[in-house]
Amino acid sequence: MSTSREDFGIAVRSALLKKGARQKFSLFFLFIVSTIIFFLDFYNVKGIKLTKNLISDGLYRISNIATSPFKLFTYTKEGASDLIFTYKENKFLKDEIERLRKEEYQVEYLTNQNENLKKILESDTNILSESTLAKVLIDKNSPFLKSIIINRGSSSGIAKGMPVLDGNYLVGRIVEVNYLSSRVLLLNDLNSRIPVTFGEKSTQAILTGKGGRDPAMEYLPETYEAEPNTNVFTSGKDGVLIPGLPIGKTIVEEKSINVRLFSDPNQLSFVTVQLTEVDKENF
């Protein structure tokens, strides 16, 4: 019995401490180094934060270059596919233009009405009406975290909490800012919480990422009756996001009300960051 315990001890010690011919560091030493780095990052030590920002800026660009051959392959495949369906798409687009022309007059009327309503509502968030276009550097799909890296950072005026849009649709918000790059937390990430409003009664809820494709509505009023295909907008109640940004449409499922996002978070190439004034206390 004691011999087997001794054998176990010897095997563990050997695995942890043996360096071998080509190993410069023992596992034990590297475990200690990793743990120190982890806790320095956890306690947000100033030096490590700066180092992390510098490493991040460099690595994001290297990652973008390293992935470029695969991106080229994807673009070529998509280009060939687009070419095949050009005729069909052209016909569809002509119909769409016709429909949009009819809607244009209606939009003009609604824009004027919206401007008047905005004057009545005194929004907490100060919109600088500036935005910056950013390229998606890394879109690494993970089963745990849904985020993207963009090629704009604090040098472009980006700060934590700023909303990120794909066209006119909200896709996420900034959660990490480096000098030349930033990380965007997507709406479907498990850690994402956005106050939203929807429906004729301006129902308030929290849009919560579930890790899957469609985020879900939480904290709905008890008397709320689920309605599918209702447009969902940001409410701006957190004082961070601009109110009225379109997000998606409601889908009623058995146990929950989910939101099908207008913009597919897995298909982002360029995004716009709204340079709003973010109150750090709110974020």
């Binding site: 080509r22 190993q23 410069k24 560091f25 023992s26 596992l27 590297l30 180094v33 990793s34 743990t35 120190i36 780095i37 982890f38 806790f39 320095l40 990052d41 956890f42 490590i48 992390k52 490493i55 991040s56 690595l59 994001y60 990652s63 890394i138 690494k140 993970s142 975290l145 985020s147 890296i149 959660v175 990490e176 990380r183």
Partner: peptide, 24 residues
């Protein structure tokens, strides 16, 4: 080598946005 495993972990943490040292 173990050193490369450690470094690959650090790189993975930076790219994935995880706390530094976790993947290592």
């Amino acid at each position: 080598g173990n050193g490369h495993i450690f470094l690959a972990g650090i790189i993975n943490d930076v790219v994935m946005g995880l706390p530094l040292g976790l993947s290592s």
